[in-house]
Design a binder for these strands. Sequence first.
DNA 1: ACTCATCGATTTTTT
DNA 2: ATCGATGAGT
Length: 716
Amino acid sequence: MAVASPEQYLADLNPAQREAVLTTEGPLLVIAGAGSGKTRVLTYRVAHLVNAVGVKPNEILAITFTNKAAAEMRDRLGLLLGNRVRAIWILTFHAACGRILRREAERLGYRSNFTIYDSADQHRLVKQCLEELERDPKRFTPRGIHSVISRAKNELVGPVEFKERVASFYDQTVADVYELYQRRLFTSNAVDFDDMLYLTVDVLQRFPEARQRWEKAFRYVLVDEYQDTNHAQYRLLQLVAGKHMNVCAVGDPDQSIYAFRGADIRNILDFERDFPGTRTIALEQNYRSTNSILRAANAVIENNRERKPKNLFSELGEGEPVEVLEVEDEHSEARFVAARIAALVEQGYSADDVAVFYRTNAQSRVLEDVLVRQAVAYQVIGGPRFYDRAEIKDAVAYLQALDNPVDAVSLMRIANRPRRGIGDSSIARLVAFADSRGISLWDALPRADEAGVGAAPQRAVKQFHTVMLSLMSRADELSVPELVEEVLRRTGYLGALEAERTIEAQGRVENLQELIGVAQEWNEQAQEPSLSGFLQEISLYSDQDAIRGDGSLVTLMTLHNAKGLEFAAVFVIGVEEGIFPHMRSIEEQGIEEERRLCYVGMTRAKERLTMLHASTRSLWGSRTYNLASRFLDELPEVGVVRERLSPARWDYGRKQAQEVPVRDRPALSTGDSVKHGTLGEGVVVQLEPGGVAMVRFEDGSERRLMLDYAPLEKLL
DNA sequence: ACTCATCGATTTTTT
DNA sequence: ATCGATGAGT
């Protein structure tokens, strides 16, 4: 078992880091500049608490924002503490709240097996409430209404208080929807993501016994990325750490980029005021980037007015200058980046060392086309997610309905999936009937006749009800993975997919098999496997890091997704006024956050940083002419080279352009088997105009390929 | 109940 | 340009 001694790990730290680890008592604010070894401080601090201070692992609560960050911290701590990490609460805000709420839900009238609604469920429910209240859907979009409700919850404003504060006609509608929405959640024994925080704060505030239990439980609390906390999270922290006041917040105000989703930068700026007696430590030595890169990033961020001064320094030498390049349009931009990546790889960089960042997802499109054409293997981070796929959501909705039958949103989702002849009108009748009798939708099912459902659908409803009942009775005896299989078979879901006999359906079947695999894995490692437990865990799980292609891939992602990562070589594309900073943020006074986003992007680079802007690009079907971003004007003279690339130099950095030679376009039709030079064998799923084919490969990935360029061979 | 056409919006995202 | 949602038509 690996157990580090204090001498060992303290020697790895610089004086500021060491102080942050050793200051265990009282509130502590660690301002951790980019690349300053923040994760190291956090993990060593926890290890120190356990090893040297003698704190019990289960008295420590370490909070992160993402599951990925939590998993990473757990891994790193495992190296220092061995199996004692298992007892430490290393969780996301939502997972921690989930665990607290499961214990306390009954005080609020919820049962502990509550269902967690994700954003799609929330959206559906808001829409349903709007329809019920008969508001003009043109004026009141579910999306808009929901975002106001969500913001209110993040500010800990409940439906009643919201109603009192209504200041406009629009808000009046929001207030009505909010109230109904919350009532619907409650009767479905369901909570949304925002409720997890809101209700946890609520229960801790209203029930002193609950508060005492939890504030006693956590002697030491640590929060990562504190600059991204919203008001509810801030309040939660106060409640949970209120007794011992051993709160350690780690963050960097310069990397606050989530104000748009409720993060309140004042939380970190006012930490010292909110937690009296705070010790503040700044980590300013950067261990990641060269001085050229750091100087450039510092120069940009210095232009923010609402900011505490800070100066990062590095001992990694001057390095290569930062490049600022102007190109003709988005196509030359993409070609340049592709050519340069190839050149870097020739120089010995691995493709995983390289990343391309952009402000909006739409910008990846052109780049992907070129990368495919030039046979550069890449991965895009932030595409559609496993748990958001329709078939996965259906399967999970089945499980949720079995576990918590009063969950109306899940029930409505699966009622006609696979198609069994229960149409929208039948559902509407059942819902109306349930409402009028004050019973749940589930209890209305056996009374479809009373609800006025037609004869044929009535039989379908009855059969659906019977299947669900029989699955429920099996739910206890079967393990979760077995239950998933049983559900898919008995409901005819799998059968319907198989009957489709299409490539897409086959892909869905594979995804469902993967879900069973996830359930199996979970079943083996869970301490007390139960259906509720499984559901609560996967409701809070996203697979950001789950899909890791083997082989060496260049990474493409938005600047937001880049936070917390590092790459030897970074390209930032589209650094233009209107794109980055984005038009919307210029209009809405969000420049400082955009500048922080720029700072985040730049500080991801270890050795090479290249920022590009195009003189012209097509946007929404028409041509636009953009000036270079103001952020580029803010760069220093020293350590930065600027160049305008003429079209003739697209192949810059390579002896010769190495485009795959154009050859005859293979005559393909949907369903043909093909072989790709690097991606392996696959099947043509769809042909698009312009000589583009969508191909699904053996590993399950789908790619859009240009037939003129892709090294595709038709298999007979 | 399903397909096709039209309209509209279109930053960023985790849980 | 393009995706998604909505509404009309088969």
